[in-house]
């Protein structure tokens, strides 16, 4: 008999829908049920490095901010180490590197506080400091993956192997968070555009 490949197939994705908050951020849906919601503290109290705030919107094809988005962030610590058993090295006690935020129902603004990640060594290739973002919402059939890089890391960015995969230099700009300062604190702005001439680069990972 002919040999068979006995792989399973990945479960297909479906939209997170407009009520994603009930499951992943019930406080925002309007009720209190869990002892503790997950993903609100990315870096923890002991993390080294620069404390930063990152904020932005997710803009649809009509130019309007989307008000029912949920974003998840995944990042390394200031030494470029992920809080994961496969990544050699250790992170500070309480450093998760993972966070979850939703957009404001009225304005579509999202924001999270974290520390600026370090450059990440990927088997000998160095990736510039970055945060992986995953975006789900009503109307998004499968979560969108992108990366946030920092505009003030121009040198590291210019050598980043992932940024350099993007053939069009103009599109690389869509991955750069813009640095500002507010009340003495560093704030990066990162607006994600789902369509249009300056559509954000998304990755098929």
């Amino acid at each position: 008999m002919r040999q068979q490949l006995e792989y399973l197939k990945e479960t297909p994705s479906q939209t997170a829908g407009p009520y994603v908050h009930i499951g992943l951020a019930p406080g925002a849906a309007g009720f209190d049920i869990y002892r503790q919601e997950l993903g609100w503290d990315i870096a923890g109290p002991n993390a080294k490095g620069e404390r930063i705030r990152i904020e932005g919107t997710v803009i649809d094809g009509m130019g309007s901010p989307i008000k029912d988005v949920l974003l998840e962030a995944w990042q390394a610590n200031a030494d470029g180490i992920y809080a994961h058993p496969e990544h050699k090295g250790s992170v500070e006690d309480g450093f998760k590197g993972w966070g979850r935020v939703i957009t404001d129902f009225e304005t579509g603004e999202w924001a999270f506080e974290t520390i600026k990640p370090g450059a990440v060594n990927d088997g000998g290739k160095v990736m510039a400091p970055h945060i992986s973002l995953w975006i789900v919402a009503r109307g998004i059939n499968i979560g969108l993956h992108t990366r946030l890089y920092f505009e003030d890391e121009a040198n590291a960015n210019s050598q980043d192997p992932v940024i350099n995969l993007i053939e069009w230099e103009k599109r690389r700009q869509t991955l750069l968070a813009r640095k500002t300062e507010r009340d003495g604190k560093t704030v990066y702005r990162f607006d994600i555009k789902l369509q249009g001439e300056d559509e954000t680069v998304f990755f098929d990972i």
């Binding site: 995944w74 992920y82 496969e86 088997g123 990366r147 990972i205």
Partner: peptide
């Protein structure tokens, strides 16, 4: 890359 091969 290691950024995708790891997770929370």
């Amino acid at each position: 890359t290691v950024s995708e091969a790891t997770g929370p």
